[in-house]
Design a binder for these strands. Structure first.
Length: 500
RNA sequence: UCCCCGAUAGCUCAACGGUAGAGCGGCCGGCUGUUAACCGGUAGGUUGUAGGUUCGAAUCCUACUCGGGGAGCCA
C-alpha cells in the first residue's frame, strides 16, 4: 500500500510503500539508515543486513543523495525520529539514480544555493517556507471568495501607467513600447463598478534598481477594490483580512513555522484592533523621545553584543586551533564562527546606520513620506500591526482621495507589520470627483488623454470607492520570520538575476 | 546611481610577499542504532579577468566583471 509520510501515524504496524527521494544516508557496516522525503514529510528507513535484504542491501548503502526510491517496510512509532515514525525496510526499488548531488548537508553560500534553486527547495527549510506560502495564497483567495469579492484578472501588458515610468519594465509590443504591470489597481477600479467587490491576484513587476533583502523585480500582489467604500471601510477589510491570514497559517502550518524558528506567540498576538496612527501622529512619535530612546537603546545593546561576539569569536578561534580536538568539534566550531561572524556583520551595519536613523527620525518632515527606517521605528514600537493614514498629498499617487477637512492630505493607509518588517499593505480611498482627479493629473504632469477610460469611471455613476494591495512575499517573510525575501518565492527574480 | 565587503578544489573556507592546504562532497575499504555519524586510504587547482609593482604575487596597486550588504526608491 502506498502511503504518504504525513499519514504514517495511521499505519503503525502495517507494511507500506513510500515513493520519494533519499534526503540523507548513513551506514555502518551491516545497517543503513535512509532518510527519505516524499514531499509530505521526512522519515528514517532502516535497512538491516539480513537474508531478506541481501538483494538490495549493498545498493542501499551506496545510494546517492536524492536518488528516487520506492521503499517498502513496516511502520514503527519512534518519537525520537523526525516525524515520529521509522520504517523497517523489506523492499527497495531505485526509480531514478542520483550521483554527486550538489547540495550537501554542509553549509553553502547563498549564491550557490540560488544558482541551484531548482534543487534547493527540496531541502527542509525551503520546503517549509513554500508550504506556508501555499497556505497563504490559498487563504488570500479563500478570504475574498468567502466575503463576496469577484476575481478579476487584470492585464500584465500595460500602457504607460500612472506612477512614473522609470520603474517599469519595457516590452516591445509589435514595435510599440508597453510595460509590464506594476499594479492592477486602475483596472480593478473599473471592475468594482461592475461587480461591487472585486480583487485581482497575480504577479507584478518593478524595475527598481534595488538590491536589498526586501526587493524582488517580480512579486505577487493581491488587490481588493470595493465600491461604496470610504477609507474606514477599506481599513476594516484589511484588518479582518490580515487576522484571517494569520489564523489560517497558525492553524495549518504550525510544524513548518516551528521548524523555521518562528516565535508563534508573536503571531498569536495579531488580533483586532490594530494600532491606528495618522501620518502626523507618526511624525510626532518619530520626533519624540520614545523613538530616540528606542534607537539609543538599540545602539547600546547592539554595541554590547558586538563586543560579546568579538570575545566569543576569539575564544572559539583559540579552541579551534587547540590540540587534541575532534574533527566534529572543529566542524561545529567552524559553523558557530560563521554564524557569529554573520551576526557581527549585520550588527555592525545596524550600528553604523542607527545614528543616521536617529537624525532622520528627529528631523522628520511631516510633509514628507515615511522612509524605510521610519517605518521600522514605528513598527518596532508596536506589537500589533499599525495602520498609518492621511499622508501628504504630494508623496502619494494622483488617484488617492483628497481629504475633505485637510486638502493637503489624502485618505490613504499603509499597514506596517510588526518587528520591523515594514509596509505590507498600501491602499487608499480613490478620488471619485472628476474635476479634482483631473487637476491632480495635471499637477503630476501626466497626460489626461492616457487616462480617458479611467476618467469615464467618474463620468458614469461615480461612487466613493477604495482598496489596497498586499505584497505576498513581504507578508510571508513576516509570517515566517525570514531575514530575506528571496526565500519566499520558488524562483526569485532580482536585479541582475533570472536563472534558473 | 552612490557607499562598504567579497571572489582560492564540486561546496565551505585557510594560507596575510617565499613549496597552494583542510573539512565536507566523490571514489575505495572498515564498522549493526546512526542523527551534519565515525575511522583509514585516494583523486581533485590557469587562486574571477586584464594589466602593473617585485628576484619572487593567491597575497600589494589599477581597471573591469560577477556576487553580497546597505542608501535612495518601493510591496
Amino acid at each position: 500500500m502506498i502511503a504518504l509520510i504525513k499519514d504514517l501515524h495511521s499505519h503503525v504496524g502495517q507494511a507500506v510503500t513510500l515513493q520519494g527521494w533519499l534526503y540523507h544516508r548513513r551506514d555502518s557496516g551491516k545497517i543503513a539508515f535512509l532518510l527519505v522525503r516524499d514531499g509530505s514529510g521526512l522519515c528514517q528507513c532502516v535497512v538491516s543486513k539480513s537474508e531478506q535484504t541481501e538483494s538490495f542491501f549493498e545498493s542501499a548503502r551506496r545510494l546517492g543523495q536524492e536518488s528516487a526510491i520506492r521503499v517498502t517496510g513496516t511502520v514503527r512509532a519512534d518519537p525520537k525520529q523526525v516525524g515520529g515514525h521509522e520504517i523497517d525496510v523489506s523492499g527497495l526499488e531505485v526509480v531514478g539514480a542520483s550521483e554527486n548531488y550538489p547540495i550537501t548537508n554542509k553549509p553553502h553560500g547563498i549564491d550557490f544555493l540560488f544558482k541551484n534553486r531548482h534543487l534547493h527547495f527540496r531541502s527542509r527549510r525551503q520546503w517549509a517556507i513554500l508550504k506556508v506560502r501555499a497556505t497563504l495564497v490559498d487563504e488570500i483567495r479563500g478570504y475574498f471568495n468567502r466575503n463576496g469579492f469577484t476575481l478579476i484578472d487584470t492585464p500584465i501588458f500595460a500602457p504607460a501607467a500612472g506612477e512614473g515610468a522609470q520603474t517599469l519594465f519595457t516590452v516591445d509590443y509589435f514595435g510599440e513600447p508597453v510595460y509590464l504591470a506594476q499594479t492592477g489597481q486602475l483596472y480593478v477600479e473599473a471592475a468594482c463598478m461592475a461587480f461591487g467587490k472585486v480583487y485581482c491576484f497575480g504577479p507584478t513587476f518593478r524595475a527598481e534598481k534595488s538590491k536589498t533583502r526586501r526587493h524582488l523585480t517580480e512579486f505577487w500582489m493581491v488587490e481588493p477594490e470595493i465600491a461604496y467604500a470610504e477609507l474606514d471601510d477599506v481599513i476594516a477589510v484589511a484588518e479582518d483580512f490580515i487576522c484571517s491570514i494569520v489564523q489560517r497559517v497558525l492553524k495549518d502550518n504550525r510544524p513548518e513555522l516551528e521548524f523555521l524558528g518562528r516565535d508563534l506567540s508573536k503571531l498569536e498576538k495579531i488580533q483586532k484592533p490594530f494600532n491606528r496612527l495618522t501620518h502626523k501622529e507618526a511624525a510626532d512619535i518619530l520626533r519624540g523621545p520614545r523613538a530616540k530612546e528606542m534607537l539609543e537603546n538599540d545602539l547600546a545593546t547592539k554595541s554590547a553584543r558586538i563586543e560579546e561576539i568579538k570575545k566569543l569569536v576569539a575564544e572559539k578561534e583559540a579552541k579551534e586551533k587547540s590540540q587534541g580536538i575532534k574533527q566534529w568539534e572543529k566542524d561545529k566550531i567552524v559553523q558557530e564562527l560563521a554564524d557569529l561572524r554573520e551576526e557581527l556583520d549585520d550588527l555592525q551595519v545596524d550600528v553604523q546606520n542607527i545614528p543616521h536613523h536617529i537624525k532622520l527620525a528627529a528631523s522628520f518632515d511631516e510633509n514628507g513620506d515615511l522612509g524605510g527606517s521610519d517605518e521600522t521605528i514605528i513598527s518596532r514600537l508596536h506589537e500589533r500591526p499599525t495602520f498609518v493614514t492621511h499622508y501628504p498629498r504630494g508623496c502619494k499617487a494622483f488617484y488617492m482621495k483628497q481629504n475633505a477637512s485637510d486638502p493637503t492630505r489624502v485618505n490613504n493607509v499603509d499597514l506596517l507589520a510588526p518587528d520591523g518588517y515594514g509596509e505590507i499593505i498600501g491602499g487608499s480611498q480613490r478620488e471619485e470627483n472628476l474635476d479634482v482627479l483631473l487637476s491632480r493629473i495635471h499637477e503630476e504632469g501626466l497626460n489626461p488623454a492616457d487616462y480617458e477610460w479611467y476618467l469615464d469611471l467618474r463620468r458614469y455613476g461615480t461612487v466613493p470607492h477604495g482598496g489596497f494591495g498586499l505584497g505576498v512575499e513581504r507578508t510571508l517573510a513576516w509570517l515566517c520570520g525570514l531575514k530575506h525575501i528571496r526565500e519566499t518565492i520558488p524562483f526569485p527574480r532580482m536585479m541582475g538575476k533570472f536563472y534558473p
